[in-house]
Design a protein around this nucleic acid. Sequence first.
DNA 1: GATGAATGAGCCTTCATTCAT
DNA 2: AATGAATGAAGGCTCATTCAT
Lengths: 200, 200, 200, 200
Amino acid sequence: MSTAPSDRAQARRQQVLEAAAECFRRRGFHAASMAEIAKTAGMSPGHIYNLFENKDDIIAAIVERDCEDVLARIAEFRQEGDLLQKMLAATEQAIDKHSEVSQAALQLEVLAEASRNAKLAAVVYRSEALVNEKAQELIQLSLGPRADALPPEEIQGRALMLGVLFNGLTALGVRRPNMAALTPLMAPVMRRMLNVILAD
Amino acid sequence: MSTAPSDRAQARRQQVLEAAAECFRRRGFHAASMAEIAKTAGMSPGHIYNLFENKDDIIAAIVERDCEDVLARIAEFRQEGDLLQKMLAATEQAIDKHSEVSQAALQLEVLAEASRNAKLAAVVYRSEALVNEKAQELIQLSLGPRADALPPEEIQGRALMLGVLFNGLTALGVRRPNMAALTPLMAPVMRRMLNVILAD
Amino acid sequence: MSTAPSDRAQARRQQVLEAAAECFRRRGFHAASMAEIAKTAGMSPGHIYNLFENKDDIIAAIVERDCEDVLARIAEFRQEGDLLQKMLAATEQAIDKHSEVSQAALQLEVLAEASRNAKLAAVVYRSEALVNEKAQELIQLSLGPRADALPPEEIQGRALMLGVLFNGLTALGVRRPNMAALTPLMAPVMRRMLNVILAD
Amino acid sequence: MSTAPSDRAQARRQQVLEAAAECFRRRGFHAASMAEIAKTAGMSPGHIYNLFENKDDIIAAIVERDCEDVLARIAEFRQEGDLLQKMLAATEQAIDKHSEVSQAALQLEVLAEASRNAKLAAVVYRSEALVNEKAQELIQLSLGPRADALPPEEIQGRALMLGVLFNGLTALGVRRPNMAALTPLMAPVMRRMLNVILAD
DNA sequence: GATGAATGAGCCTTCATTCAT
DNA sequence: AATGAATGAAGGCTCATTCAT
């Protein structure tokens, strides 16, 4: 009862998260000031501290929210239709979308920050664990009954490889403006992870 | 000739670079203070500004130095011996080395910083271009005469894929402590990039 | 309306202006530190930046305030009584008051600063324009109906001469401690500006 | 013998004075760094301290040199020809020369600085005393035998008034760009100081 | 719940000055 | 006589955070 956050408070938190994400994307985590976030969120700086412990707490909440978004996107992949095709479409989109460099930069900055901030690290770890778990389910779904022929480590490894690919796309996207030549190469690799049983 | 830095100055610059890299790794770019860097480098804060324009200039120099290290490592790959094996060994090393999380974090932070710092971005872009070029040469070397059968875009795409893989390893390595299951999966993907001619 | 500063903020600004003027007089513009000003004003250094853009902004505000003081003093001259007598009294006061050397020094320093600071220069120019305008009105008032016999340039020139005299008193007052012998000389010159119609 | 400055040292000092004056004019006394002065003078920063005590010592030397220039100019006035005409020409020149605002600004800054720097104040006072003395001689020369009819205070007052006028021109010249209307007004005032015997 | 005035530590950077060579 | 590497104190300014209202 004491700490039960009211609906109103929840909505206010969302406002802050929205505003903070925008500011962090625009200026980076350190350069974005609480004052700017407050202004963007349409509330006073002081009040933010009624909703969040501190600035770190905000970035942690953003990471959690982003994690949910990723999980939701993964859930969509489970719908009807060819999984490989849908994932390739997603990667192609990632390769083309250069408008999202600032979003990518924020993700990288969060990772860097997490390596020195235990609380944030916990959130990132948990987030990664959840995503990885869902990725494994996806792979098993994609392989169908043949999945049983593969040892769990293989499934886990493939999920990790998907993680490497998506994280790599994010990082390389910040490193260079044009990655078009990469698109055709994704297909065989993704297929190898999602649709193939191999002795290899 | 006019601004040719003396040997002494060069050595001092190296001291600062060493110290700054350590501080940046330990605390992050923003949290590391010039005072701390100066102390670590064994000189006064003021003198750093005789050697570098400003803090940004230091991180840029670090990126350039790191780039040279990468190029040197690539050059080693060109030596005698099976390229695929050597690169797999390198990735396996990357997968295992958890002591280097802070080094990885610094790299990610640099990328984030570059998305908002034009000068740093230029260094990062140039660095990536150099590495990608060398990666393409490596791939052609690995394929041998068969390389002629592949269109340039294919070579370029494969080099990009290597970039995605290494960058992805770096990022995912910060996201989770254990990536052991990934090791066996690297082989087929790397082989696909380095040793195979395929219609698809 | 949007940025209408509250009464409280206005009062705080006045505090800072008062304190800064004192510090600037005591130490000079460059030597006076924001920390000292803050302490003198009884607030934290940080808070000053909620009230003023930066240090330059403070000196500009002081100049504007001083300008208003001058205009107010000029307005007093318009009251009943012999203008020439009142102005001579004012100059005599200026000649004798050696306690105000530091105030005079600040004015000179402001002028020097303005020659390299565009924003401050604008304030100084505007200030001078206002004062000169009022001085012309004063001269016309003093001459009465005879003023119509003089071309506008003559009026403007006389106003400028008054400016030269007061500025000259300020500067020379810093240059030497004793200017008593000057007092009797002011009368004929001032009369020439305020009370005489001449072919030359 | 011990401190007898060699000719070479004297020449070096002149170099520094030249360079410093230029830098001070360009940037102001405080903003001009010793490094910049050294570079402009074509010598090392360290060596300047073999020639001058410190930065204040340089500005003091500049003031002394400028004083000599003024005295030299006054000496020229003593040559053949109508003194009033020559002085009016000088003031007209001062009124028109807007290229010299930075020179004027430096003079004002020096005065401001002198009010807080005893050593500089001494130089400024002495300089003013010398100039004033020469101005009195000039006035007596201009009046010729009639000068004997005037009490010394009157002569002193007139010399002071000349000082007020020239200092005022300097200050007002920084305050406003256009002082053309002032030119015709200088004649009667100057004549009053230089050529007239009055009961008034 | 909400404000925004206020704090104060700490940051990057500059620069007069020194001194070993 | 001359250099320029080196110092270190100090400065202006920012910003996460607090708290009286």
